[in-house]
């Protein structure tokens, strides 16, 4: 019993460390990839090829002064960054990186992740409200409206693979894709999921909450130092979560020939992460009404139609 608890704790520790390192190096990859896409170099000076840049950034953020503006709602202001970060990291608990590398193999893995991503919005709302600044409030309102809208489309598109696999357990969904990866029969859902995943994580071209030109920086404008870093950690951890979900639901998770399962999983996940950066380097930002139109009038109806057709087909085949 005690041994099992210790073992689980070690597992959790390893995954958290890996996630935080991954997050740090994602910022590096982002600057490098976008730099090269703009025919620049990206960071090169800190360490060989700039590989120590995340470390330098982290040290800078930690040693910065932690400022609290005068008129903020202090308790809420202090709690918000944690609420922004914790759901992103907690979601890794159910993700099967390989057949035997998973912290908690629970039956409602998909729902667990959806629930956590819907809780993630509180960090944003609370920081925006507690900051007592019009930019932060506007940013957080935009962000939460966007997340709530796109979560519907995302949930509906996730249901396609869930129906095909007949399970909410992420491992069973992965195993169901031994023959055929779900992004072929569920291509529409795959496209909808990709779009709403980008919107859900507030990334370009849907990064309205952080529109630098109009909102300064959105909901985290009043934060500095480590608290600011926590929002960043949360955002990138969320990107990893949606990438993992994409790999599991549509790209067959850890299944694949020749290479070990963990490598397959990482390849698929990082490919989707690259897609995030690629989109950011390519597309301009949408206007807010365009964003809402796309979410409610295009993605949700298509996702509903896809769900209907999928369930009819699944019903016809199963019986």
């Amino acid at each position: 019993m005690v041994l099992a608890i210790v073992f689980t704790l070690i597992k959790i520790l390893i995954i958290v460390v890996c996630v935080l390192t991954g997050v740090a190096y994602m910022t590096y990859a982002e600057r490098k990839v976008i730099g090269h896409m703009q025919v620049r170099l990206g960071p090169v000076h800190t360490g060989p090829m700039g590989l120590l840049q995340p470390l330098a950034d982290g040290l800078k953020l930690m040693s910065k002064e932690d400022m609290t503006p005068d008129m903020v709602d202090k308790p809420v202001f202090y709690v918000a960054p944690f609420l922004g970060m914790v759901p992103g990291i907690a979601a890794f608990a159910v993700i099967p990186f390989a057949p035997n590398i998973v912290v908690a193999d629970i039956n409602v893995g998909v729902l667990y992740i959806l629930a956590l991503s819907s809780v993630g919005v509180y960090g944003i709302i609370m920081s925006g409200w507690a900051s007592n600044s019009k930019y932060a409030t506007l940013g957080s309102l935009r962000s939460s409206a966007q997340i709530i809208s796109y979560e519907t489309a995302m949930g509906l598109s996730i249901l396609g693979p869930v129906l095909l696999a007949g399970s909410l357990n992420l491992k069973e969904i992965t195993e169901a894709q031994r023959g055929l990866w779900f992004f072929i029969p569920q291509f529409v859902a795959f496209v909808i999921y990709s779009i709403s995943a980008v919107a859900e994580t507030n990334r370009a071209p849907f990064d309205l909450p952080e529109a630098e030109t109009e909102l300064v920086a959105g909901f985290h404008v009043e934060y500095s130092g480590m608290r600011f870093a926590m929002f960043f950690l949360g955002e990138y951890a969320n990107m990893y979560v949606v990438s993992c979900m994409c790999a599991i639901l549509f790209l067959g998770g850890y299944t694949g020939p020749l290479l070990p399962p963990l490598v397959w999983f990482l390849i698929k996940m990082l490919a989707f992460m690259f897609f995030f950066l690629w989109l950011r380097a390519t597309l301009p930002r949408l206007r807010f009404d365009q964003l809402m139109n796309l979410g409610w009038k295009v993605l949700i109806p298509i996702a509903l139609a896809n769900l209907l057709i999928t369930s009819i087909v699944v019903y016809a085949i199963r019986n």
Binding site: V108, L111, Y112, L114, A115, L116, S118, V119, V121, Y122, I125, S144, I148, E151
Partner: peptide, 13 residues
Amino acid sequence: AIQVMVYAGAILV
């Protein structure tokens, strides 16, 4: 999961 998703994630927001 539904409790968190619907009540915490949607209604309370």
